[in-house]
Each structure stands twice: as C-alpha cells, then as structure tokens.
Simulated scan of single mutants.
Amino acid sequence: MAQSSAAATQLRKELKQMQKDTDIPGISCGLVNDNNIFEWEVMLMIPDEVKYYGGGNFRAHLHFPPNYPLMPPTFTFQNPIPFHPNIYPSGELCISILHPPEEDKYGYEDASERWSPARSPEKVLLSIISLFSDPNPDSPANVEAARLLREEKEGKHKEFRKRCRACVRESLGEE
C-alpha cells in the first residue's frame, strides 16, 4: 500500500505540473474521476500540419498501475478510435515506451526503447503525439492500417489517407 500511496503522490504532482505547463501544445489532461488519481482523461489535439491525422481531437484514458513508476501506464483511445497502425481495434495503444521494462522476448525492441521509471506522463504523451506524425507499420497493432499505409507509401492508392481523414472528421463530431 505504501508504494501505491507514493505513486498517488507522484501522479498528483505530475498532473498538476502538466495542467500548469502551457508549453505542451496539443495535450490536455484531467481525471476521469476526481477520486482516482490513477486514471487520467487525455485529449490529444493533433496539429493541422500532421499529414494523416491533422486537426483531429482524440480522447483517451491513461491508466497508471499501483506500482507506478516502476511499471508503465496503459493508454486506451475512447470513441472514435483512430485508424492507426499502432492502435488495436479495442483502442489500446501499442508503443515501445509503454512496454514493461524487461527483455523483449522477440528481440524487436531494445531495452532503452521500453518503459523506464525516468519517463514522465508528459514524455509519454509527447511520444504518442509524434506517433501520429510518424506511424510505425513495422510493428502493427492494426494489421489492416499498416498494410494500407505501406501500400499508400508505395503509391498504390490513397485508402489509408481516406480512412484517417474520416476518423478525424468523426473526432470533430462531423460524421
């Protein structure tokens, strides 16, 4: 319980700092429930110049485990769930920095890419924003999105872009 109490104290401090810091463009954080510091509601406002997702506003929940910061939080998009190679259809995000700090049994990720207690929620959210600028189709959570992105980069069609733009419109309440 002491670890959970220490985690709660640290999370209160980090949330307060993020809410106060006006230098973090495109990110807004609060609590899902005022009585639970371990569950944050996040709004990601993707800059207009981002190729596929520009102008989108995506809601998500950032859930911290009781043993935070030793273990990573999970990040799950709420409806609409972005059509993205690194987001499972359930809304859960797959990104290296949120993977537990252990050896990757598949040898795909270097330990330095995985979770570290030195990472803050701010760094995590900035990494997620950058994933919208540069999706990773090589480690897909959504195989269809990864395939369509690869095909678009090969010049075969614009289906990936169409699906992303529809998702952005839906995030803005336009569909």
Rank of each mutant, 00 (worst) to 15 (best):
Y88F: 12
G56R: 02
P65C: 12
K51Y: 05
G155S: 05
K123H: 10
I81K: 13
L11S: 14
M45C: 11
P82Q: 07
Q10I: 03
T22N: 14
A7N: 03
E49H: 15
I81R: 13
G54K: 11
D138F: 01
Q78G: 02
E102D: 13
Q19L: 06
A6S: 12
P73Y: 08
D21A: 06
E109Y: 10
W40Y: 05
E151R: 11
I81L: 05
A8I: 09
M1W: 13
H157A: 09
I97P: 03
L93P: 04
L62N: 03
L126M: 10
S127F: 03
A8D: 13
A141L: 02
S90Q: 08
S4E: 13
P121D: 00
L98V: 04
W115L: 11
K156R: 15
P69H: 00
G155W: 02
A141D: 05
P140L: 07
A145V: 07
L70G: 05
V42I: 14
L149A: 02
E102M: 13
G54M: 09
R163M: 10
P25I: 01
P73F: 09
R114P: 00
T22H: 10
N67R: 06
C164N: 05
A7M: 04
Y88D: 06
L11R: 14
A6Q: 11
L131P: 08
E14V: 00
L70I: 06
C164T: 11
R59C: 08
E39D: 10
S116T: 13
E174C: 07
S112H: 12
L44T: 08
H157D: 08
I37L: 11
L126A: 00
Y108D: 14
Y53A: 08
A60W: 11
D48V: 10
S4Y: 01
P89N: 10
N57K: 15
L44D: 06
K105Y: 13
L148Q: 00
A111Q: 12
N142G: 02
I95S: 05
G55V: 03
K20L: 09
D23T: 14
